[in-house]
């Protein structure tokens, strides 16, 4: 500190003798060093006053008094600066915590795609921020059933991620893949309704596949309808039902519907991040996805998902607005 004071005196006296750019530049560099040593603005004015007194001995009292005045005034600036520095520090701490939380979430919510006999399954799920508000849960316990849940939490970021962990554990406690979709939705609705605040909800599409009879039974709680493609008739059907979002009202009932799948039929389940295009008002995304999926039917389920993501992402100039999840099940 003492050394810096001496340096400041030297630099100031050089500048007073010759007000050129190079002396000014040296001064600027010195101030940066002072800032690094945590010298506050009022301390700097005080150093300036002492240096000036030394260089110009007979300064009038009014000038010296004016510096004392300035020192007092600068105290508030100093406090503000300290506050700013501590905020920067806190921000960095939060950023690190967020990163850890995102890593933990990814581990907890990691989805492994099962390979049941007769079905080809593909999936793409891309979060728009660090934490994903979409979640896909598969169950296949080597029995005759395979089940899939595609979920989307209303809201984004950390609150959505926390809510999603709850959904995952709710699904885990149901344990077996043979449950009826209507039962699964009713149980989850009760769990979420009890524990989440009034403006947070979950939409879910739940399907159970009977691997022996090739019957897909589905139910939906306020979720974007899935698409079913009948390859023989070359037609699409929307798999929708009027089920209410999970977590709005207690004791809701959910209906379920059966469809039969034949060879080369497929089902595409999506979240609203796939169909919502904010900047394209009159764009019929569902029709677009149908045409696209039809033309990609020769690919594997995973390749189909990846291609659809690629095309839709390109359409939005690679600026995703919402978490994007697409799951495809193909019967072969």
């Amino acid at each position: 500190m003492k050394e810096l004071k001496v340096q400041y005196q030297k630099v100031l006296s050089d500048y007073l003798l010759n007000q050129n750019e190079s002396n000014l530049y040296i001064g600027q560099n010195l101030v940066r060093q002072l800032m690094k040593s945590n010298v506050s603005p009022e301390d700097l004015v005080s150093i300036h006053k002492q240096s000036l007194e030394y260089i110009v001995p007979d300064l009038p009292d009014s000038v010296l008094n004016s510096f004392d005045f300035l020192i007092e005034v600068m105290v508030d600036f100093g406090l503000m600066l300290k506050e700013h520095q501590s905020l920067l520090l806190k921000q960095e701490e939060i950023r690190i915590e967020m990163e850890i939380a995102a890593k933990i979430q990814n581990l907890l919510l990691e989805t492994k795609i099962p390979k049941p006999n007769g079905l080809d399954i593909g999936m793409v799920s891309v979060p728009v921020r660090k934490m994903n508000g979409d979640y896909v849960h598969f169950m296949h316990d080597d029995g005759k059933y395979f089940s899939v849940a595609v979920t989307d939490v209303v809201g984004k970021g950390v609150p959505a991620a926390l809510c999603m962990s709850m959904v995952k554990y709710g699904l885990d406690t149901l344990e077996y893949a043979n449950n009826n979709p209507s039962y699964v939705l009713e149980v989850l609705n009760r769990i979420i309704e009890k524990s989440v605040d009034d403006s947070m909800f979950v939409s879910m599409f739940y399907g159970r596949y009977d691997l022996e009879k090739d019957i897909f039974t589905f139910g939906s709680a306020g979720h974007e309808p899935a698409l079913y493609y009948n390859s023989k008739q070359q037609t699409f059907t929307d798999l929708d039902s009027n089920g209410l979002l999970l977590g709005v009202l207690p004791e809701m009932k959910y209906s379920q519907t059966d469809i039969h799948l034949s060879e080369n039929d497929f089902i595409i389940m999506i979240t609203d991040g796939v169909t919502e295009f904010r900047k394209m008002d009159n764009f019929d995304s569902r029709t677009y996805i149908k045409e696209l999926a039809k033309s990609l039917n020769h690919l594997s389920a995973q390749e189909m998902c990846e291609k659809i993501f690629e095309y839709l992402n390109k359409l939005q100039d690679f600026l995703l607005e919402d978490d994007f999840t697409i799951v495809t099940i193909k019967k072969y």
């Binding site: 984004k156 605040d197 009034d198 947070m200 909800f201 939409s203 979002l245 709005v248 609203d272």
Partner: peptide
């Protein structure tokens, strides 16, 4: 002119109130 699902959340919370 635009609403996403967080907007729905606001209306549902208000509806419940």
């Amino acid at each position: 002119t635009y609403m996403d699902s967080t907007g729905l959340g606001v209306f549902v919370a208000f509806y419940k109130k």
